[in-house]
Computed example of a mutant assay.
Amino acid sequence: MGKLLNLIRNEWLKLWSKKATWVMVILVAILMIGIAGLTKWIGNQTDSVEDWKSASQGKIPFLEEQIANTNLSADELQSFKDTLAVEKYRLEHNVAPISSESVTGFISSLPDMLSIITLFTVIVAAGIVASEFSQGTIKMLLTRPVKRWKLLTSKLLTVGIFAIVMSIILFVFGVIGAYIFFDSVPGMNLDVVNGQVIEVSFWGRVLLLTGLSLVNVFVIGTLAFMIGSVFRSSSLAIGISIFLMFMGVNITFMLARFDFAKYILFANTNLTQYIGDNHPIIAGLTMPFSIVVILVYVIVFLVISYWSFIKRDVTA
């Protein structure tokens, strides 16, 4: 265990000795402050501000009309009923929704911005093994009296820690940007649990969504790690991973009408689709099913990565 920790420490120091890593940190900080300012500026260009009570009252007739529709599936019907219950609860108890033009509104959007971290994690994961070959340092690395699987594990764990640290940086600067540009406006999330409308903890929900969004970061990062380990090319790994990251969901949408679509990785990586009033990309998907699918893919990625690094002639 001590050797593995030392290997992780060495990989961590190597990672942060690169200028590119610090550039990523600076970019995240600038992006978060910039996005907050841009969001505020765009909001200021909109003159009309609709009262939330009027909006809720306007939704109720539409929801009641949809519920009366006999052509709805069971899931769609339940969704409309839950939404109607939430809108009625807001009006009866004077509970405003979280405004997008507020501190809490911007902070609530931070989990969706983790795609920025996914991009940087892919770059690091793709190059952490492949760069050893391209720079010719792999032979020196393997002269150490350490088993190859430990070397690869230290690199994999370093990528995971990097993703977590970068997510924290994004979150911190996102919160700073929120408090710089937005005002505090009362508002609360509501959920329907077992037929009852409940008030949701703001920070609890944000942290939950952030944690679930990190799953997608780890999965795409593991994919890039595998490609970089197998083909020893960081550019190939980055290209394929980024392509799948942006196109995976679109491809899944196109294939959604087929039964096998639910087994596609990108139909399952977004676990936030099961939280609140979100809906699964494919009807019938559940969080336990998605977790199992993700685990199967990740295990396959890791098996291929370790087999490639341990069994093949990596010193060639």
Rank of each mutant, 00 (worst) to 15 (best):
Lys3Asp: 15
Leu5Val: 11
Leu7Tyr: 12
Asn10Phe: 08
Glu11Leu: 02
Trp16Ala: 13
Ala20Gln: 07
Thr21Val: 12
Ile30Gln: 10
Leu31Arg: 05
Gly34Asn: 02
Thr39Met: 14
Ile42Ala: 14
Ser48Ala: 15
Val49Asp: 12
Val49Met: 10
Asp51Ala: 04
Asp51Cys: 03
Lys53Tyr: 03
Leu72Gly: 00
Asp75Lys: 04
Leu77Ser: 09
Gln78Phe: 05
Glu87Phe: 11
Asn94Thr: 10
Asn94Gly: 01
Asn94Ile: 10
Ile98Pro: 07
Pro111Ser: 01
Asp112Ala: 00
Ser115Phe: 04
Ser115Gly: 09
Ile116Asn: 12
Phe120Gln: 07
Ile123Val: 15
Phe133Tyr: 11
Thr137Phe: 13
Thr143Asn: 14
Pro145Lys: 09
Val146Phe: 10
Leu152Pro: 07
Leu156His: 02
Leu157Met: 11
Phe171Gln: 02
Val172Gln: 01
Val172Met: 06
Gly174Phe: 04
Phe182Ile: 03
Met188Asn: 11
Val192Arg: 02
Asn194Ser: 12
Leu212Glu: 04
Val219Phe: 05
Leu223His: 00
Ala224Pro: 03
Phe231Gln: 04
Ile238Phe: 07
Ser241Glu: 08
Ile242His: 01
Met245Asp: 06
Phe253His: 11
Met254Asp: 02
Leu255Ala: 07
Arg257Phe: 15
Phe260Met: 13
Lys262Trp: 04
Tyr263Phe: 10
Leu271Met: 07
Gly276Cys: 06
Asn278Met: 02
Ile281Val: 15
Leu285Ala: 11
Thr286Tyr: 05
Pro288Ala: 07
Pro288Gly: 07
Ile291Met: 05
Val292Asn: 14
Val298Gln: 13
Val303Ile: 10
Ile304Gly: 06
Ser305Phe: 05
Phe309Pro: 04
Ala316His: 14
